[in-house]
C-alpha cells in the first residue's frame, strides 16, 4: 500500500484497524460465510429444488410483495408526518417527534402481540373492521400492518433532516414566478426530497423483508397463504433440515446484499444532491 505511506502523527492505526478487522471477521464475516459454505453440501439441482418449492415461492411472493406495499404506504404517510413535524407547530409535537422512533426501541415481539390484540375480532380496531367484512389479524393484511409499523421511522427519519435544511428562498422564488403551491411541491421540493425518500423506502423495504418478531403473532402462519420467508427458515430448522434452511437463507442474503448496495448508492446520491454528510 505505497499510496498510504504518508507520515502519521496520530498513534493507534495498526491496533485499532487490526482489532476492527479481527472482530468483524470473527462476529460477522466468518459466521456469514458458513451459510454459503453449508449450501455446497447440496448439489445445484437439490438447491434449486429447495428454493423453488411451491410453498417456499409462496413465501417469497408474500414477503417481498407485502414489504413493497408497506414501504410504499410508509413513503406516503412518512413524508406527510415528516412534513407536519418540520413545517407546522401543533400541541404535543415534541411527543410525536420522540415517539416516531418507537418501532426502533420497542422489541418486535411486544409490537407483534400488541398489534394482534388491536386487530383481533374483539380488539379496539378489529371490532369496527369485522362488521365491514375486513379481517386483519391472522390474515396477510395483518402482516402488512406489522410491516408498516416497523418501517415508518425509516422514512420519517431520512426525509425529516432534508426538509429541515430546505432553503425557503427556493419556494419563494417559485411562488414569485407564479407557481401554485402544488406545482412548487411537485417541481421544486419533491426532486430535492426524492433521493432521501427512495433511501427511506429502500430501508423500510429491507427491514420488512427480514422482519420476524412482529409478524409471526399477527400472521396466522398458514402455509401458502400467510407464511413469510423468515418463518420458512425457522420451520426447516425445527425439522432439522439445516441444508434446506440455509438454501433459503442464501436467497434472502443475496437480496439483502443487493439492497445494501442500492441503499449505499442512494445515500451517496442524497449527499451529493443536498451537500449533507448522509
Amino acid at each position: 500500500m505505497a499510496a498510504t505511506k504518508t507520515f502519521r502523527v496520530l498513534p493507534g492505526f495498526n491496533i485499532t484497524l487490526g482489532f476492527t478487522l479481527a472482530y468483524l471477521s470473527l462476529i460477522v464475516l466468518i459466521p456469514l460465510s458458513a451459510v454459503f459454505l453449508k449450501t455446497t453440501s447440496l448439489s445445484f439441482a437439490e438447491y434449486w429444488h429447495v428454493v423453488t418449492a411451491p410453498r417456499v415461492v409462496a413465501t417469497y411472493k408474500l414477503s417481498f410483495g407485502l414489504s413493497l406495499v408497506a414501504a410504499a404506504i410508509n413513503s406516503v404517510f412518512g413524508l406527510m408526518l415528516a412534513w407536519a413535524l418540520v413545517r407546522y407547530s401543533f400541541p404535543g409535537k415534541r411527543l410525536v417527534d420522540a415517539l416516531v422512533d418507537l418501532p426502533f426501541a420497542l422489541p418486535t415481539a411486544v409490537a407483534g402481540i400488541a398489534l394482534t390484540a388491536l386487530y383481533a375480532k374483539n380488539g379496539w380496531i378489529g371490532q369496527y373492521l369485522d362488521p365491514l367484512g375486513i379481517q386483519v389479524a391472522f390474515k396477510p393484511l395483518g402482516i402488512l400492518v406489522a410491516l408498516v409499523f416497523i418501517g415508518l421511522p425509516f422514512v420519517v427519519r431520512t426525509v425529516q433532516p432534508i426538509l429541515e435544511d430546505l432553503d425557503t428562498e427556493l419556494e419563494e422564488a417559485a411562488t414569485s414566478l407564479g407557481a401554485h403551491r402544488w406545482q412548487t411541491f411537485r417541481h421544486v421540493i419533491l426532486p430535492i426530497l426524492l433521493p432521501a425518500l427512495l433511501t427511506g423506502f429502500a430501508l423500510a423495504f429491507a427491514r420488512a423483508v427480514g422482519e420476524y418478531g412482529s409478524v409471526i403473532f399477527i400472521a396466522g402462519n398458514i402455509p401458502m397463504v400467510s407464511e413469510i420467508t423468515p418463518l420458512m427458515i425457522i420451520t426447516k430448522l425445527e425439522q432439522y433440515d439445516y441444508a434446506g434452511a440455509t438454501a433459503i437463507a442464501t436467497v434472502m442474503l443475496m437480496l439483502s446484499f443487493t439492497l445494501l448496495l442500492i441503499i449505499n448508492g442512494l445515500q451517496a446520491w442524497t449527499s451529493k444532491r443536498t451537500g449533507r454528510d448522509r
Binding site: 468483524l24 451459510v35 429491507a206 423468515p230 427458515i233 439445516y242 437463507a249 434472502m252 445494501l260
Partner: peptide, 19 residues
C-alpha cells in the same frame, strides 16, 4: 461490511451460529 448485520434478517443471524 460493518453495516452488514443491519441488512441480515434476525432469523439468519441466529441460523449462522446454529450452523
Amino acid at each position: 461490511l460493518i453495516d452488514l448485520p443491519f441488512s441480515v434478517s434476525p432469523v439468519i443471524a441466529g441460523l449462522v451460529f446454529v450452523l
